[in-house]
Design a protein around this nucleic acid. Sequence first.
DNA 1: TATTGTTATACTCTATAACTATA
DNA 2: TATAGTTATAGAGTATAACAATA
Lengths: 152, 152
Amino acid sequence: MTNKKSMFDLQTFMPYRVAVLENAISNSIAQLYTDKFKLTRSEWRVLAALGNKPGMVGKEVVLYTTQDKVQVSRAVIRLESKGFIVTTEDPNDRRNKNLCLSKKGEKLLAQIIPLILEQEQFLLDSISEEERRQFVEITDKILVRAREIISK
Amino acid sequence: MTNKKSMFDLQTFMPYRVAVLENAISNSIAQLYTDKFKLTRSEWRVLAALGNKPGMVGKEVVLYTTQDKVQVSRAVIRLESKGFIVTTEDPNDRRNKNLCLSKKGEKLLAQIIPLILEQEQFLLDSISEEERRQFVEITDKILVRAREIISK
DNA sequence: TATTGTTATACTCTATAACTATA
DNA sequence: TATAGTTATAGAGTATAACAATA
């Protein structure tokens, strides 16, 4: 006698497994920038974005960090008030704010990045180079599908 | 002339990629139980848990759904007030509440599960059976590491 | 009119601590 | 004392709409 409802098990449900994984990874990484540096995830992402591509305007940071403009606007305001970024007016379009790390922001980022990369390496050391390549390929394919659904 | 800070790119940072994937998947699934059935993720997980293993007590649901006892307690209260679950006192230990789906809850779950599984299938149709196996294996390995870090 | 960015609001999620009732 | 579950609170994440300034 089989129970029809027992055919659904959260434990083997792919979206649930990804959520659990993301939660564990995200917590393991977040403690690096929250505990010692008092940054939110949103702030950390904006910092990392500007470290990689200085001078982006808000809209570009939105695209780069996959956050919406409200999140970015608030993170920028907090980071500026803490002195980690400086904003300059774009002479070509005065609606835009060019965002750059301050010296203090660069120093902060230079402290965080090695810790973050070390943590990532520890996570990735559990799998082979080949698996790492497969992982990127597989997650990319699934991501495309998920975005198809959302945009419908 | 290379920029040392440009060595860190969010786009290739594994934890960021997993966060983006989880976000997309989770949104694509969530719209199924929020839009039509007005459930939160926490409520959906508790429902699914009880559908799979009726009669669990709160503590077991906590373990099964990877949520903490506060989340579960609140989801249970809401689900009970909506008439989707019924709670009975455990005669052996009156601190425990045995949780079961009501007929209404079973009906609800029976409506949701096919939609959820269809969505999962659409996501998984983007990869081969072999890749699916690899994905589970890889994510399990990374999860173990992430939990090692958190428990430190 | 459309776009960039800000402000306001509300709801969910997460984490913590304090509490109750039982054991 | 320890455990199961509840209540309270606050910070962070997410979504939406309304708004100001500029194009």
